[in-house]
């Protein structure tokens, strides 16, 4: 190791310390505090707390709402992810085939990501409203009255929520995948065209394999995002989230803080948050294993 490298390493330390401090204060410390409180019966309004060992974790395993909330999480993760990546790839194909308006299309697809989730929920609340909502009015004007349903009733609300999640996130993942595509040299595509490959063949034989590492990162990011998703489901049914769409983050919020009829069990909420972290880690590891491929270099 050269002296200049050692000197540069030392030089890096003072630049890293501020961000490390921020990371420790705002992430490591709260995370460890959460783990600490998960072993206590703690309400959060005073320093009084009772050590109860792993009781909170044992309770969670027999808690019906914990399991139903986890199922909601998994539905959002699987179905939301399936449609998001399916559509993102469809948009990629279209994007590669068209010559004009690429910037406009990219901006339009990304637009929902810069809108507040609460605003998105209000917007879609109006669209889905069964009495004066845009969706049912469109169906009526098209003579499709038989398709009209209360989109936000207990039977349909999950599908409506997943639709809104897909609408919100597809542009973001499309842009991530597009960033991978932009790194593929044009010469590769030119060779393929000279060899007579169709756009579909080019997409599956060149684009997908060559952006696989970006796709893997995007999937991992989606797993994390979907499992800890809070704002959209929370705001989707007005001032108080309906139980049909309580996922684990909402349940944690309700247990710890809530509104109107709050529970104030910070310790138990922390235990479920620990479970959620473990679940996230498990899914991330599984996805990384399943999606690992040899990277293609060009």
């Amino acid at each position: 190791m050269s002296n200049s490298f050692k000197r540069n390493k030392k030089l890096a330390i003072p630049f890293l310390v501020p961000s490390l401090l921020v990371y420790i204060i705002f992430f490591i410390y709260p995370a460890l505090s959460g783990l600490f409180y998960s072993f206590f019966d703690y309400k959060g309004f005073s320093r009084d707390k009772t050590f109860i060992g792993i009781s909170n974790f044992v309770e969670a395993l027999s808690d019906k709402i914990f399991w139903s909330a986890l199922v909601i999480n998994l539905k959002i993760m699987f179905f939301g992810g399936l449609f998001i990546f399916l559509l993102a790839f469809v948009f990629l194909i279209i994007f590669q085939c068209i010559g004009h308006f690429k910037g406009t299309i990219r901006a339009l697809l990304f637009l929902p990501n810069i809108i507040s989730p609460v605003a998105i929920c209000i917007l879609w609340g109006f669209v889905f409203n069964q009495n004066f909502g845009l969706l049912n009015n469109i169906l009526t004007s098209m003579g499709l009255e038989n398709l009209i349903v209360p989109w936000l009733d207990p039977e349909h609300i999950m599908g409506s929520l997943i639709f809104v999640i897909v609408w919100t996130y597809v542009g973001f993942y499309f842009v991530i995948l597009l960033s991978g595509v932009s790194k593929i040299p044009d010469s590769v595509y030119e060779s393929a065209i000279l060899e007579g490959a169709s756009p579909i063949q080019t997409f599956f034989k060149i684009t997908v394999p060559m952006i696989w590492d970006v796709f893997t990162v995007a999937v991992v990011y989606w797993l994390i995002t979907s499992l800890k998703m809070f704002e959209l489901p929370f705001s989707f049914t007005g001032f108080k989230p309906r139980m049909e769409i309580w996922n684990l983050p909402i349940y944690i919020y309700m247990l710890g803080f809530g509104r109107n009829d709050a529970i104030y069990r910070i310790g138990y909420a922390a235990a479920i948050a620990v479970f959620l972290s473990i679940i996230v880690m498990i899914f991330v590891q599984i996805s990384r294993k399943l999606m690992s491929r040899e990277s293609i270099e060009y």
Binding site: N129, I157, T237
Partner: peptide, 19 residues
């Protein structure tokens, strides 16, 4: 009819408007 799909405040607005 369809009250189960009413997300607050849609139901109370519908009432206020005479539905």
């Amino acid at each position: 009819n369809g009250w189960m799909g009413n997300v607050w405040p849609a139901g109370q607005i519908a009432w206020a408007q005479g539905s």
